[in-house]
């Protein structure tokens, strides 16, 4: 088979945010970390499981930093790049900030994936960054057993504009801005990721 015909999702054991460690596993791993020194400027750190870190640098401004990367969730390399970049930048918006630049994070199984496929992933990510008005200002790439792509994104905001995940007030209403169900949505039967349907559901109680 030509490298260019290899299905992107067939190179990964899992895809998208489904690759994340479970909350319980992550908590256990982080519990072994030494207690961090108190940094007065660090407005949002690891304590509240928020979307990004926020550091106040003076009275007027905060820096917001986040990173997100994962294995392919679709076979179209440009779409994979676009999804991964959108997912990464979203954390800046979720903190109330404005993204200013991104760094690419890339791991690719050299020899198993066509260079033009990798190029299309990067181009998809750069396209999303361009539409968000930010440059891909650098990055880091390694030869890895499975394809990985994502961004580290830097944003800014005023200290009074920070939106934590922890400021809800009694009486607030909740809005969800997109539909759920990405984990099980094949783009078409032909391109359904090989790992997508993992288990049959137990019979429903209804």
């Amino acid at each position: 088979m030509e490298l260019s015909e290899v299905r992107l999702t067939s190179l990964a054991h899992g895809g998208g945010c489904g690759c994340k460690l479970s909350p319980a596993v992550l908590r256990e791993l982080l519990s072994a970390m030494p207690a961090a020194q108190a940094f007065p400027g660090l407005l949002v750190g690891t304590e509240t499981g928020d979307d990004a870190a926020v550091y106040q640098i003076d009275e007027q401004s905060c820096v917001i930093a986040t990173t997100d990367f994962f294995m392919p969730v679709v076979d179209d390399p440009r779409d994979f790049g676009r999804i991964a970049a959108t997912n990464a930048i979203s954390d800046i918006y979720a903190m109330g900030g404005r993204p200013i630049m991104a760094l690419a994070i890339l791991g690719m199984p050299l020899g198993k994936i066509a260079p033009e496929t990798v190029g299309a992933i990067l181009a998809g990510g750069a396209e999303v960054c361009a539409s968000a008005g930010i440059p891909v200002a650098g990055g880091h790439s390694i030869d890895a057993p499975e394809p990985i792509y994502g961004l580290a994104v830097i944003g800014i905001c005023r200290p009074d504009a920070v939106r934590r995940n922890s400021g809800a007030k009694a009486g607030d209403r909740l809005i969800l801005t997109k539909g759920l169900g990405v984990g099980r949505r094949p783009c078409s039967t032909a391109s359904a990721p090989s790992w997508a349907p993992t288990r049959r559901c137990m019979p429903s109680p209804m």
Binding site: C17, S90, D172, I175, L180, M202, P205, M206
Partner: peptide, 30 residues
């Protein structure tokens, strides 16, 4: 709720790749 079907519970726990934002907003602004 006891009557919630299993499939619905799975969707509410489903990992979202590039999912939406969950926003808590004052009732009068919602």
């Amino acid at each position: 709720p006891v009557e919630l079907p299993e499939w619905q519970r799975h969707l509410l726990a489903d990992p979202q790749t590039s999912g939406g934002l969950l926003v808590a907003v004052a009732r009068e602004r919602a």
